[in-house]
């Protein structure tokens, strides 16, 4: 009971802080929106889906699932940045001295960050009709489920990394190292089919690709998505697996002794 109440309190704290910080809200929304419009309109004439001929899919449409994924990745990861400072000064310094398993800290933060990420993604759903999607409830459910798994995976990743970092500058550096390549090579910007074999393989090996794929398949559900990476079942399993593995890693990380042997 205590653990549940603590997770709830941590979740609430994340959400309240996010809602009060309008710049964060706007920033997380405008950046992906701008990128989507820039790339989508910029490559409008250049882009062609391999094998689909002139099926009418434009780049804005192709890019949309990837942009949702990007927004989730960013919101999730950067909801954990405060951990870096709060660990040595501030609330986490005290929280680790509370009669509480540190696993609770991971889950409270992960659920909080994921809520924010999914909420941000949901704001984008209003754009769906504008680009010709008419998504039914089952399809939307698929998108949301995939968003939740991606959110959990990346808040956990962020939390684990932030826990090990001494400065927020270091956190930014490491995150850029991880986050951007993971997104670039997730089939969000270009499909695996048209890419050179090496890149195609990297896309197939990148677990994030399957989260993006799941979002894409949800948007077309129940029809088949034009460029599906794997079956819905496989994409779901891999995305869920990624969340489980990264959460387990974050739990392992925070359970290590705080002050090592020097």
């Amino acid at each position: 009971m205590h653990a549940v109440a603590s997770v709830a309190a941590l979740w609430r704290r994340e959400v309240i802080k996010f809602v009060r910080d309008r710049s964060r809200l706007l920033g997380a929304l405008i950046q992906p929106l701008g990128l989507w419009l820039l790339l989508g309109l910029g490559f409008q004439q250049t882009f062609q889906i391999p094998g689909a001929g002139a099926s009418g899919m434009n780049y804005l449409e192709f890019l949309f699932p990837g942009i949702i994924a990007l927004m989730i990745l960013f919101t999730a990861i950067f909801s954990t940045i405060s951990v870096v400072e709060e660990r040595t000064s501030g609330f986490l310094q005290v929280a680790v001295a509370a009669p509480l398993s540190r696993t609770v800290l991971v889950f409270g933060n992960a659920l909080g960050g994921t809520t924010l990420a999914v909420f941000q993604a949901a704001l984008f759903f209003v754009l769906l009709p504008l680009i010709g999607f008419s998504v039914g409830l089952p399809g939307l459910a698929l998108v949301v489920i995939s968003s939740i798994f991606l959110g959990l995976a990346f808040t956990a990743l962020g939390f684990g990394i932030a826990w090990r970092m001494k400065t927020t500058r270091g956190f930014h550096a490491v995150m850029n190292l991880f986050l951007l390549p993971l997104w670039f090579l997730s089939g969000a910007l270009f499909p695996a089919e048209g890419a050179s074999p090496v890149l195609a393989w990297l896309i197939y090996l990148n677990p994030v690709s399957y989260g993006v794929d799941l979002i894409r398949q949800g948007l077309y559900w129940p029809a088949e998505a034009p460029i599906a990476l794997a079956s819905v079942g496989l994409s779901l399993a891999i995305t869920a697996g990624l969340a489980v593995v990264l959460l387990a890693w974050a739990v392992y990380t925070v359970r290590q002794p705080l002050y090592g042997e020097g």
């Binding site: 009971m1 709830a8 309240i16 005290v94 509370a98």
Partner: peptide, 15 residues
């Protein structure tokens, strides 16, 4: 957060 929000939060952590 407000003073009370902070205190409620930490109270929860101590059960």
């Amino acid at each position: 957060l407000t003073v009370e929000e902070n205190l409620r939060f930490h109270g929860a952590l101590y059960g």
